[in-house]
Design a protein around this nucleic acid. Structure first.
Lengths: 104, 104
DNA sequence: CGATCATGCAACTGGTGGGTTGCAGTCGGT
DNA sequence: ACCGACTGCAACCCACCAGTTGCATGATCG
């Protein structure tokens, strides 16, 4: 996990995957359980879960004979921090240029 | 612009697009200028810029006979806020469940 | 200890998106 | 007014990915 930013965003750039993520944010669920409430096959969901786990957005929790998954909020918050850093950096650089320009 | 989250992340989930974004975060550049320092054609870059503009991550600035682009940091910071909200929400829900469980 | 239910693996399909090339249009400076 | 440079549009190619079906495997509850 902890891949480069574009990889994580690619994982987040899919409707179905978001659907899965938000459900896992509310409560832990197995792949089969998710398959019953989503309009796609269990195997499709399994692939999505693998992709999400790959970038550390989701965690597998073996429990009895099924494997439940939970969303990792801390990962998302960490991303948020990085994004905010970049965003303010870009804007402040712009502001600095503007300030310099206004001196003439 | 201001599309749903998956769409924005899909736009961010590409190496080339991220490369473009970070460069535009440092200074305004035209599509042709970007093409000289990136290993892809100008038309490819134009498509990426259109995609980025579509979700409000980039802004077009007509200037003379060329069109310069700048990255919009505020958009990124806005995303960060949403992500952090979701992340902490997930984790706090988890904590709440854990708290309830511990009462037994 | 056996039947069941959930996961895992493999092969295939369709569609979408990143990339390219070629050409037409248009604006600007000398 | 012309030449050069930058942009926009269109058609095409190719690779990757979401999704499916089918089957094999294996652990668990009764």
């Amino acid at each position: 996990m902890n891949q480069s930013l574009p990889q994580v965003f690619a994982a987040l750039g899919d409707e179905t995957r978001w659907d899965i993520l938000t459900r896992l944010g509310a409560r832990e669920l197995s792949a089969s359980a998710l398959a019953t409430e989503l309009p796609v096959s269990r195997q499709a969901i399994a692939k999505h879960l693998a992709a999400l786990a790959e970038v550390g957005l989701v965690e597998a929790i073996p429990s009895g004979r099924e494997i439940r998954y939970r969303a990792i909020g801390a990962r998302l918050s960490g991303l948020a921090t990085e994004l905010d850093r970049l965003g303010t950096q870009w804007d402040s650089r712009l502001a600095r240029i503007k300030t310099i320009a206004e001196r003439f």
